[in-house]
Computed example of a mutant assay.
Amino acid sequence: MQKMRDLGFARTPLSYNILLNLYYQTGNTDKFNVLMSEMEERDIVVTNTHSIQRNACAAASDLEGIDKVMAEWESNPEVPMGWDCYVNGANGYTKARNVNKVLAMLEKVEKLITKF
Score class of each variant (00 low, 15 high):
M1H: 10
M1F: 12
M1N: 10
Q2K: 08
Q2N: 05
Q2V: 00
K3L: 13
K3P: 06
M4K: 03
R5H: 13
D6N: 06
L7H: 11
G8V: 05
F9E: 07
F9A: 03
A10Q: 01
P13S: 14
L14Y: 15
Y16N: 01
Y16I: 03
Y16L: 10
I18S: 12
I18Q: 10
L19T: 02
L20Q: 04
L20F: 01
Y24T: 02
Y24G: 00
Q25E: 14
G27A: 07
G27P: 06
N28A: 07
T29N: 14
T29P: 01
T29H: 14
D30N: 11
D30V: 12
F32A: 00
F32Q: 09
N33F: 01
L35R: 03
L35A: 04
L35E: 04
E40Q: 14
E41V: 04
E41Y: 12
R42M: 12
R42V: 02
I44T: 11
Q53V: 07
A56H: 08
A58H: 02
A58K: 04
A58F: 04
A59W: 04
A59H: 14
L63V: 13
G65K: 00
I66D: 01
D67G: 11
K68N: 15
V69G: 03
V69P: 01
V69Q: 09
V69D: 05
M70G: 08
A71D: 15
A71V: 03
A71G: 08
E72P: 03
E72S: 11
E74M: 09
P77K: 06
E78L: 14
P80S: 13
W83N: 08
D84I: 03
N88I: 05
G92A: 12
Y93R: 10
Y93M: 06
K95C: 11
K95P: 07
A96F: 07
R97I: 09
V99F: 12
N100P: 06
N100R: 12
M105P: 02
E107Q: 15
K108G: 02
K108Q: 13
E110M: 09
K111W: 09
T114N: 06
T114L: 04
T114M: 06
F116K: 10
F116Y: 10
